[in-house]
Simulated scan of single mutants.
Amino acid sequence: MAARFGFRSGVIAAVVAIASVGVGPASAQDGFPFGLEMTLDAPPQPGSKRVPSLDVGDSGEARLELWCKGGKGQFSVAGNTIIFAAGPLEDRACPPETAKADDDLLAALSAVTTWTRQGDEISFVGPTTLRFHLNTN
């Protein structure tokens, strides 16, 4: 339990440190897409039409809709460095394989360290690269 608390404290300290460097939201054209929604570049799970999406607010607060689960989180961005801290997810009685896919995606998103943008494509880079497309319609 103490190790878990220490890890959370470290994540919170890192988020605060990045947020305190004075980097505010950039415009959606030249920086991180604050205030916009994006969809994961991935197929739906078998038997579903849903594809994970992120709705990122102007201050980095995020609403996640995964293949089955949903929840909130927080992005902290400084230059091309990024930290994502997930909040609790809603348990929606997901099938086991879909719940695992959601958990794996959340773990990959929580492990990202940098991000890049090319037009309407946002890539979150960590041990796994996650590509999202801005919803521009």
Score class of each variant (00 low, 15 high):
residue 46 P to Q: 11
residue 68 C to R: 08
residue 112 V to P: 08
residue 52 P to T: 04
residue 55 D to G: 09
residue 39 T to I: 15
residue 1 M to T: 05
residue 40 L to M: 09
residue 97 E to W: 10
residue 125 V to T: 04
residue 17 A to Q: 11
residue 41 D to G: 06
residue 5 F to C: 03
residue 15 V to E: 04
residue 50 R to N: 03
residue 85 A to K: 04
residue 122 I to M: 07
residue 55 D to E: 13
residue 115 W to S: 05
residue 25 P to K: 12
residue 57 G to F: 11
residue 76 S to K: 09
residue 135 N to L: 13
residue 7 F to V: 11
residue 60 G to N: 06
residue 119 G to S: 01
residue 24 G to S: 14
residue 94 C to V: 07
residue 93 A to Y: 07
residue 135 N to S: 09
residue 111 A to Y: 11
residue 107 A to D: 13
residue 123 S to N: 08
residue 125 V to M: 05
residue 119 G to I: 10
residue 37 E to S: 15
residue 66 L to P: 06
residue 108 A to N: 09
residue 86 A to Q: 08
residue 137 N to F: 14
residue 96 P to K: 08
residue 7 F to R: 05
residue 119 G to F: 06
residue 110 S to M: 10
residue 39 T to S: 09
residue 22 G to V: 09
residue 120 D to W: 06
residue 117 R to C: 00
residue 50 R to D: 14
residue 121 E to S: 03
residue 108 A to Q: 08
residue 133 H to E: 12
residue 124 F to K: 01
residue 99 A to Q: 06
residue 132 F to M: 06
residue 135 N to R: 13
residue 105 L to A: 00
residue 5 F to W: 03
residue 29 Q to W: 15
residue 71 G to R: 08
residue 119 G to K: 03
residue 10 G to H: 01
residue 51 V to D: 03
residue 65 E to Q: 14
residue 110 S to L: 06
residue 123 S to Q: 14
residue 78 A to M: 03
residue 59 S to K: 09
residue 116 T to F: 03
residue 79 G to M: 00
residue 36 L to M: 12
residue 75 F to N: 01
residue 99 A to L: 08
residue 36 L to P: 03
residue 11 V to W: 04
residue 1 M to K: 00
residue 62 A to I: 11
residue 30 D to W: 15
residue 131 R to M: 07
residue 126 G to E: 00
residue 62 A to G: 12
residue 137 N to K: 08
residue 95 P to Q: 07
residue 39 T to G: 02
residue 112 V to I: 15
residue 35 G to H: 10
residue 17 A to V: 10
residue 27 S to V: 08
residue 16 V to W: 06
residue 108 A to I: 11
residue 50 R to A: 12
residue 23 V to R: 00
residue 57 G to Q: 10
residue 54 L to I: 13
residue 108 A to S: 14
residue 67 W to I: 03
residue 92 R to Y: 06
residue 41 D to L: 12
residue 5 F to H: 01
residue 34 F to R: 01
residue 84 F to V: 01
residue 84 F to Q: 01
residue 40 L to F: 05
residue 123 S to P: 00
residue 70 G to T: 12
residue 79 G to R: 01
residue 128 T to Q: 12
residue 3 A to M: 04
residue 63 R to C: 06
residue 5 F to A: 12
residue 92 R to T: 07
residue 4 R to G: 02
residue 132 F to E: 06
residue 6 G to N: 04
residue 5 F to S: 03
residue 21 V to Y: 00
residue 38 M to P: 08
residue 137 N to E: 13
residue 53 S to Q: 14
residue 44 P to W: 10
residue 62 A to H: 10
residue 99 A to D: 15
residue 60 G to E: 12
residue 22 G to R: 02
residue 25 P to F: 07
residue 49 K to L: 15
residue 120 D to N: 05
residue 112 V to C: 09
residue 107 A to T: 11
residue 116 T to Q: 04
residue 20 S to V: 10
residue 109 L to Y: 11
residue 82 I to V: 15
residue 60 G to R: 11
residue 127 P to F: 05
residue 73 G to H: 03
residue 98 T to P: 02
